[in-house]
Design a protein around this nucleic acid. Structure first.
Length: 393
RNA sequence: GCGGCGGUGGUAGAGUGGUCAAUUACAAGAGACUGUAAAUCUCUCGGCUUUAUGCCUACGUAGGUUCGAAUCCUACCCGCCGCA
């Protein structure tokens, strides 16, 4: 399923190819997030034009949207999305965190500035975790409008992912918050490992399944988890949970990856879950990661941020009012060759949905193109050179 | 000319004796966003500074009543409507 074509001489970066029934994925690659079987704003043709190789959709959200009945007769993501290239699905594990402790404790999964400086306003934890699985509190759509609980476990997650039919599916896991202590991480890790074994057992199709390595911000737990998960019969490995991005400065960030990768087999692909700022991608690639998924290009695009070769600009700022330079002058995407910053600024001001569409399109192109540059740089033994150019920004 | 109504911060528009530098919305400014309950959220938004249960100037203009007025009274100015 996976072939390493070339290894970088001065880092763990590698050039590879993942083979799937819907075509190959050249790695390192960016994975566009299309949670609800749709990448917000963009059509599948747009995604092809933006050089997208792989899209990740979500088990939890599709389950909520379709229900068990709907899933039974679902034609599958490829048909539903009109996307004949590779697809993967997340197991719903992330929602165990994002709807649970992420709300209750505040802050995201990446430890850093936000976690330490801004006070968190706690929101209701919508998740109840048990040893067997997870109860999600959801709004009841019936007349009463009350709340009810829906149960998701490894078996159910795999069943849903089989109905969705992605090429690559993920084991069910429980990511922890960077605020969780060692004791909790250890307990959660035991649970996750058991759920992962159950995920493998539950699988009845020939879809490829990735195991997920957890362990929070703790080196020995990351080691232990990587060893354990690497010992199971997975087709690839995903690195999940919390990361300490800015502790110890940017260069030292994402140490967690170094605590896992050495224990993972060289001949299986590695996916870094939900990480994808430009800096982080370079970190990941140099540490041996093959694929990255992240909402940043689409979400930030909708919010007015556009990635350009030397950073990021905010097109909602007044200073772009009469800016006649092209969106990203050295980008050759379908948007940047036509749209000026002033025009996009105006669309954002008018709250025209086209603004988010154009920015998302460019951002996705930007990230996919960046990955292409990274692949080329590895092929030409110039990865470190490219990395230093972007990471120093 | 007479009568009625109204003039509030960048705009719209609340407030009709004290808790009002003034609800709210929009505009404006700043920030956040990393396996998407996010086309979202947070903060600022009269001036000044020691950024504070601080000082000043402010609700058309000028006076007055009152311990105290954006709020009541008087005059004037301006706008809209009706009648001449």
């Amino acid at each position: 399923m996976f072939r390493v074509l070339k290894k970088d001489s001065s880092s763990r970066a590698r050039l590879g190819i993942i083979e799937t029934p819907h075509g190959i994925i050249e790695t390192p690659s960016f994975v566009v997030v299309g949670t609800h079987a749709k990448v917000r704003e963009l059509s599948s043709q747009d995604l092809v034009r933006a050089k997208t190789q792989l899209i990740i959709s979500n088990t939890y959200h599709m389950w909520q949207k379709l229900g068990d009945k709907g899933l039974r007769k679902y034609p599958g993501l490829h048909e539903s999305m009109d996307w004949q290239r590779p697809l993967m699905t997340d197991s719903g594990g992330f929602q165990v965190f994002s709807l649970g402790f992420a709300r209750e404790l505040g802050g995201g999964k990446v430890a850093g500035k936000g976690l330490l400086q801004q006070e968190n306003t706690p929101e209701e934890n919508l998740v109840r975790i048990t040893e067997e699985g997870v109860f999600f509190s959801v709004q009841d759509e019936s007349a009463t409008g009350g709340k009810r609980e829906m149960f998701l476990d490894a078996k159910k997650s795999v069943w849903i992912q089989e109905k969705l039919g992605a090429d690559i599916i993920l084991a069910f896991d429980e990511p922890t918050s960077p605020l969780h202590d060692y004791k909790y991480n250890k307990e959660a890790l035991v649970r996750t490992h058991r759920w992962e074994e159950e995920s493998l057992k539950a699988k009845t199709t020939n879809q490829k399944m990735y195991g997920i390595v957890q362990g929070g911000l703790f080196e020995d737990l990351r080691n232990e988890s990587a060893r354990f998960v690497a010992g199971l019969d997975f087709d690839g490995f995903a690195l999940g949970g919390s990361f300490g991005s800015s502790f110890g400065g940017k260069e030292k960030s994402f140490n967690e990856i170094d605590w896992m990768v050495p224990f993972l087999p060289e001949d299986k692909p590695r996916h870094l879950l939900g990480i994808g700022l430009v800096h982080d991608i370079f970190m990941g690639v140099s540490k041996g990661v093959d694929t990255f998924d992240c909402v940043v290009p689409t979400r930030e695009g909708r919010h007015g941020h556009v990635y350009i070769s030397n950073g990021r600009i905010d097109l909602t700022k007044g200073k772009y009012h009469r800016d006649e330079t092209l969106l990203c002058p050295d980008c050759d995407c379908a948007v940047c060759t036509v749209i000026t910053r002033g025009e996009l600024y105006q669309l954002f001001r008018d709250k025209n949905p086209r603004a988010g569409y154009l920015a998302s399109f460019h951002n996705i192109y930007f990230f996919n193109n960046l990955m292409a540059k990274i692949r080329q740089s590895i092929a030409e033994d110039k990865f470190e050179e490219l990395k230093s150019k972007y990471v120093s920004l």
